[in-house]
Design a protein around this nucleic acid. Structure first.
Lengths: 333, 333
DNA sequence: AAAAGTGAAGTAAACGATTAAAATATTGTT
DNA sequence: AACAATATTTTAATCGTTTACTTCACTTTT
């Protein structure tokens, strides 16, 4: 049993309230001699504040929770770094909980873990909540914001403009002279995938290119999806360029292409979407449409703050700019 | 303001205690008609249990906290998966907090975040706590265990046998006929690095090889460390094999070697330590001494359970077996 | 029909902190 | 020395749950 404020009060011979004031630095309300004694006693007893009790009575907390899906890609770390940095700046603590993939039960569990305790805000990283879970989240009255995922409805989010991302990546290849361009690893679900596909098609349309059905290979953003897609395209594909829907997909593509005897970028150009560290540690280095994940994280905690202050912003949908980073995986034709 | 147990009690017309009993399934203590009504009301009011209050009165909690250092390597995810799976099995929730690198202030902050609330156990992933912070942890009376890090003192940990890991990796190269073997990316701190170095030297000794000073390049487990090490060895190195102290270091080595005009494994063999997914997505695929991170995570939560039950095990130091995975980065001589 | 037993619900005291409001001590003013 | 003003401390209520104990209303037993 850890020491409480009462133990300190007893030891020093003052009332618990005095101890409380000293320990939470309500200056002006105690004299420095008492303060000394209290602090010393706290030290000696190895006192740790019981935040559960604090949060119960104050009905507020300084922790921000991030719920992250264990998708097969690897940018969550960068977002979390962004959250962490900004949270620190504002004096918030950060806790992270993992919601396994799309399984709604695991999602619910993760969600309840954070909703059932007094957190000041919830950030959801690339998670599309099911109906029920979304309801749960709304009912909780806790400020929240989705990160790295865009929605049709009124949910607040901060994300890249996925339609534009798809467009940019495709356009990049077109500008380099490519006309037969694949799209690999796209998921079949409503959001990110659909938008990137839309951008891809727009770029193709503008250039007067009609895409063939087998240019588009679905997947789940994983390395394996990339390999599988390349297998489908095959050794003798007439594609000269491929847009990969994530860095891991791009790497899968790259390796499988090499296995098949195709050289990147000589025989085949690849643009990746995401632009994480992976792009630079692979050879050839991957040209990418890079998202600013770090910034998403930072904006996320600012958003939580804003929602807390002015309810207004509870539906704001915000895009973080992306940029093209040319490296070595595209060749002009 | 979210609905409380009292609101439900009022709505149904029973005492709060009854509601509590129903909602926490203390069967036998209520009849099913009341139960129905209570549950319905809870549903309607969108009731969420306030865990802060629960934990306050029960003085126990079902959350396990993982504190992870943001080191430059990438196995934390696998450990967390292991923790998550095992935690789920036991009905525990998992929260993760990040302690930036070795900076003692950030460590302290992370530690307090979890110590100050009622968590049932703390798992520390590849973190070496400073004196003060270790004291903090001990005083908290919360069961804890270090993961993926071994110590000289009596701290409980679960880790790979790092001396053996260093030995195995080096021996593997020796068995393939190598005699000039480097060690790259090793850190200068007391634990992991020192042990692997010891194993490296033992293998060399046994084979009657005397290592030269510049065979050993220090670093911090990062990709950059690998590049830097390879730069030091240089294009004309007489080494034929290198032990990389992490997968990221191995990849740095690999890429820089290629830049320098050295082919792996034809001109230079590399063994990596860790064996994460990275080994397979890089070309050539990296032969590795692989750690079983997933298992470490699982054992970690079992350990927390054990400590809670029998205080005895609070100092147990346990090794998880490693294994060699031969892939493509070593050539026999 | 009285006594004993059982099932269901209510009462009230915790848990560890915070914080208005009340009480007391200290200092300054005249 | 009496009073006001200010500084410091104590008292007591409160946050939302749980739970040991008590109470009440029926059944069963004899």
């Amino acid at each position: 049993m850890s020491a409480t404020i009462k133990d300190i009060a007893n030891k020093v011979g003052v009332a618990p309230s005095t101890v409380s004031r000293v320990l939470s630095n309500k200056t002006k309300y105690y004299n420095s001699l008492t303060a000394e004694k209290v602090k010393k006693a706290a030290e000696e007893l190895g006192y740790k504040k019981n935040q559960a009790a604090v949060e119960l009575v104050k009905r507020e907390s300084n922790v921000i929770a991030a719920v992250v899906s264990s998708v097969k890609t690897n940018f969550a770390g960068e977002i979390i770094d962004g959250i962490q940095e900004e949270a620190l700046k504002h004096g918030y603590d950060l806790i992270v909980v993992y919601a396994g993939s799309a399984d709604s039960d695991e999602q619910k569990r993760a969600l309840l873990t954070v909703i059932e305790r007094p957190v000041m805000g919830i950030l959801l990283l690339s998670i599309a909540l099911g109906e029920d879970n979304l309801k749960l989240l709304k009912e909780s009255q806790i400020p929240y914001c989705f990160l790295s995922m865009a929605f049709d409805d009124k949910r607040p989010f901060i994300s890249s403009d996925d339609e534009e991302v798809g467009y940019k990546a495709t356009k990049l290849l077109i500008d380099k002279g490519h006309r037969k361009i694949g799209l690999a690893g796209i998921d079949k679900y409503p959001y990110t995938g659909r938008l990137r596909l839309k951008g891809y098609k727009r770029a193709l349309d503008e250039a007067g290119i009609v895409s063939k059905e087998d240019w588009i290979q679905t997947g789940d953003y994983s390395y394996l999806s990339g390999e599988k897609a390349m297998d489908q395209y095959g050794k003798d594909t007439d594609l000269t360029g491929i847009v990969a829907v994530s860095d891991m997909v791009a790497i899968g593509l790259l390796n499988k292409a090499r296995n098949l005897g195709l050289n990147v970028p000589e025989d085949l150009s690849i643009v990746s979407i995401d632009g994480t560290e992976m792009c630079r540690i692979v050879q050839p280095q991957l040209t990418s449409v890079s998202q600013n994940f770090f910034e998403m994280g930072k904006s996320g905690v600012q958003r939580i703050e804003d929602i807390k202050k002015h309810k207004k912003l509870a539906h704001l949908q915000q895009m973080i700019p992306t940029r093209i980073e040319e490296r070595q995986s595209i060749k002009g034709i």
